[in-house]
Simulated scan of single mutants.
Amino acid sequence: MEVRILGPIEVLIGGTPVRLAKRQHRLILGILGIEANREVSSGRLIELLWPEQPPARPRAVLHSRLSELRAMLRVAGDGPAQPSIVTGDDGYALRIPTPAVDAHRFGQLIIDARGIASDLRARDVLRQALELWRGPVLGGWSPAGPAGALVSSLEAARLTAIEDLYEVELRLGNHRSIADELVALSAAHPTRDRLTSAVMLALHRAGRSAEAVSVYHQRRVWLSTELGVDPAPALQNLHVAVLRHDPALDQVAGPGALDRSA
């Protein structure tokens, strides 16, 4: 069984999608997938599924939904060896090999990439990890309050992986091919300093220094208007370096940068 939560929630058994009849079935499986092999209390599941107005007997309804979900997975599966939803002391857990959950596979690939000395190989692993994403976590479902950490931490990890990827691409001298992608990404995430730095550097190296300066000014105005703060010192220094056409900004490792540990 494969559980996909980096996008619309999906379950595949033997490569075949399993139809989950109700939204609550999908959310339960998505939550348990994020917490794979860890028990999630009934209270927490109820809070996540019905944050505003739980049913009159929420534990009974939750139990019913889990029974339905188990039955669907059992019918679609191939016997007792299939991963399963088990009942714990005060909740439920999805017993499944963690690589069968795309979010956990993503996390492991990111760890692997950061341990690779070769920029070329690290780039390939980072792209492999990011290709697992088919859309927002859990299909865009985002619980309010503290429960939102379920999805926000994964979304933040994705942005960090994107930043890692583009920094590798810049080291490899691929500034022209990524500049326009970075313009859109940095505009969508104005609080991410690493994305802003990356797009400024990519534009400058691609001979588009005026656009790099414009990106900085747009970000400075946004930060001042929305958050009442100035750009970080590192961004300010980069801005000055772009204005001065500092030759150090043009230094790239190039495609021969195979080993950062050398």
Results as ranks from 00 to 15, higher is better:
residue 110 I to S: 00
residue 129 A to S: 04
residue 72 M to Q: 09
residue 69 L to V: 05
residue 55 P to S: 04
residue 83 P to T: 04
residue 123 R to A: 11
residue 79 G to D: 15
residue 56 A to G: 08
residue 115 G to H: 06
residue 79 G to I: 07
residue 124 D to T: 12
residue 141 W to G: 02
residue 107 G to K: 03
residue 100 A to V: 02
residue 56 A to T: 14
residue 74 R to Q: 08
residue 119 D to C: 15
residue 106 F to E: 02
residue 92 Y to D: 04
residue 113 A to M: 05
residue 82 Q to D: 15
residue 74 R to E: 15
residue 73 L to W: 02
residue 85 I to S: 12
residue 75 V to D: 15
residue 108 Q to F: 12
residue 135 G to W: 06
residue 101 V to K: 01
residue 73 L to D: 04
residue 131 E to M: 11
residue 82 Q to T: 10
residue 127 R to L: 13
residue 125 V to N: 01
residue 143 P to I: 05
residue 140 G to Q: 00
residue 115 G to N: 12
residue 105 R to K: 13
residue 122 A to N: 06
residue 120 L to K: 05
residue 139 G to I: 09
residue 81 A to M: 14
residue 54 P to Y: 04
residue 56 A to S: 13
residue 68 E to D: 14
residue 111 I to A: 11
residue 84 S to H: 13
residue 100 A to K: 08
residue 111 I to E: 14
residue 85 I to E: 02
residue 136 P to H: 06
residue 137 V to N: 02
residue 77 G to F: 03
residue 84 S to Q: 11
residue 77 G to C: 03
residue 96 I to H: 01
residue 66 L to E: 01
residue 136 P to V: 06
residue 124 D to R: 10
residue 106 F to I: 05
residue 59 R to Q: 15
residue 127 R to V: 10
residue 118 S to V: 08
residue 117 A to I: 10
residue 93 A to R: 10
residue 93 A to V: 06
residue 55 P to M: 09
residue 107 G to P: 03
residue 59 R to K: 13
residue 93 A to Q: 09
residue 72 M to R: 11
residue 128 Q to E: 15
residue 130 L to I: 10
residue 83 P to E: 07
residue 144 A to V: 13
residue 83 P to W: 05
residue 104 H to F: 10
residue 101 V to H: 03
residue 92 Y to T: 08
residue 77 G to P: 05
residue 105 R to C: 11
residue 116 I to Q: 14
residue 109 L to Q: 08
residue 86 V to H: 08
residue 141 W to V: 02
residue 117 A to H: 11
residue 108 Q to C: 06
residue 83 P to S: 09
residue 66 L to R: 03
residue 70 R to C: 06
residue 142 S to L: 15
residue 117 A to G: 10
residue 119 D to W: 08
residue 119 D to L: 13
residue 124 D to M: 09
residue 84 S to G: 07
residue 134 R to M: 07
residue 135 G to V: 06
residue 122 A to M: 03
residue 61 V to N: 09
residue 68 E to H: 07
residue 121 R to M: 14
residue 134 R to W: 08
residue 74 R to I: 08
residue 132 L to Q: 12
